[in-house]
Write a protein that binds this DNA or RNA. Structure first.
Lengths: 155, 155
DNA sequence: GTATATTAGTTTCATTCGTAACTAATTGCA
DNA sequence: TGCAATTAGTTACGAATGAAACTAATATAC
C-alpha cells in the first residue's frame, strides 16, 4: 500500500463514497418528486412504475420490479393506486392467469408525457455545467461502481 | 442543440441519472448496513450520528443534523437510542441550556472503531478496480453534481 | 390424476420516517 | 423589565416501508 493510502481507522464522512452518494441521491430524488408529486398526485414509486411502462408496455408486476429495483410489495402497492386512479390498465396473461399485464391507460400516457419533461429538465439542470466528456465519464464510472457492488448479482 | 441531444419526450430509466444514483446508492447503503446492523444492533441513522461524533466530538444535535444531512427529528431519535444504549454521552451547554453537547462514550468509541473498517472495507471493494485517476474523476464529478442541485443552498 | 412444490402477486403487521405541533430556553426590542 | 419572536430539541401522528404470512395459479413428482 502506498503512503497516501487512507488509514483504515479514520472515517471522513465527507470523503466516504456511500455517504456522499446517499446524500446526493436523496436530495435529487426529493427535488424531482417535488416537481410532480403535488401537481399530479403521484408518488415516487408510482412514477417509477409509470416510467417503465411508458418505456416498455405490457410488463408483469414482477418485470416492473426487476426493471425498477423496487421490491414486489412496493410495486403491488403502486400498481393498485395507479389502477384506482385509472392511470394504468391491467389484464392477466392467458397462458398464466397469475401473471399481470400492465400498461399505461390513455390518461396515464398523457400524464407520463407531461412528467417526462419535468424529470428530464431537472436532469438537464444537473448536467448544465457538464461537458460531453464529463457526462461520458460519469456514465462510465457509475457503470463501473454498479458492477463493483459486493452483492451485485443479476437479480 | 446537436442532433444527438436526447428528445425531451422519451425517458430511458437506465440512462436517467437520478434513477441510476438512487438504485446504486440504495444498494450500497443496504449492503454496508448489512455488515454492522445485526452485529452491533446499530441502525444506519445511528451509525451516521456515531460517525460524525467520532470525527468531531462535542457537536450539538443540530450540528450533527447539518453534517449528516439528516433532519433534526431523525437525529433526535438516533440520539435517544444511542443514549439508551450507552454509546454516546450528552450534556448541555452552559451558555445555552437548550443546546446539547454530544460525544461518543467509551463503549461507543470502541464500537466506532470496530465499524470503521467494515465501512471502509466495503468502500475499498467498490473502488477495487478504480485507478487513482478514476477515483479523482468521480470525486470531482460528484462535487460538481452536488453544486448543480437546483435547491442547493447552504442549508 | 392427485399431492407437493413453486411462482405471481396481495395482505398484514410492525417498524421507520417525515411533517407539523409542541415545549423549553434564549434573544430582541420596546 | 416584560412580551413577542426565534431557536434547540422532542413528541405525536399519519404515511411509507419491508419482512413474513397468505392466496391463487401453475408446474412437477409420483
Amino acid at each position: 500500500m502506498s503512503e497516501n493510502e487512507k488509514a483504515n481507522d479514520t472515517l471522513l464522512l465527507a470523503d466516504f463514497l456511500p455517504y456522499r452518494l446517499s446524500v446526493l441521491s436523496n436530495r435529487i430524488s426529493r427535488s424531482i418528486a417535488d416537481g410532480y408529486e403535488e401537481r399530479f398526485q403521484l408518488t415516487l414509486p408510482e412514477w417509477r412504475v409509470m416510467a417503465v411502462l411508458g418505456e416498455e408496455p405490457d410488463l408483469s408486476a414482477g418485470q416492473v420490479a426487476d426493471r425498477t429495483a423496487m421490491d414486489k410489495v412496493a410495486v403491488s402497492r403502486a400498481v393498485s393506486k395507479l389502477l384506482e386512479a385509472g392511470r394504468i390498465e391491467r389484464h392477466f396473461a392467458n397462458e398464466d392467469r397469475r401473471r399481470s399485464v400492465l400498461a399505461l391507460s390513455e390518461d396515464g400516457n398523457k400524464i407520463y408525457h407531461e412528467v417526462i419533461p419535468i424529470a428530464l429538465g431537472y436532469e438537464a439542470k444537473l448536467f448544465e455545467k457538464f461537458s460531453e466528456t464529463e457526462k461520458r465519464q460519469l456514465d462510465e464510472l457509475l457503470l463501473k461502481l454498479s458492477a463493483s457492488q459486493v452483492g451485485a448479482t443479476d437479480d
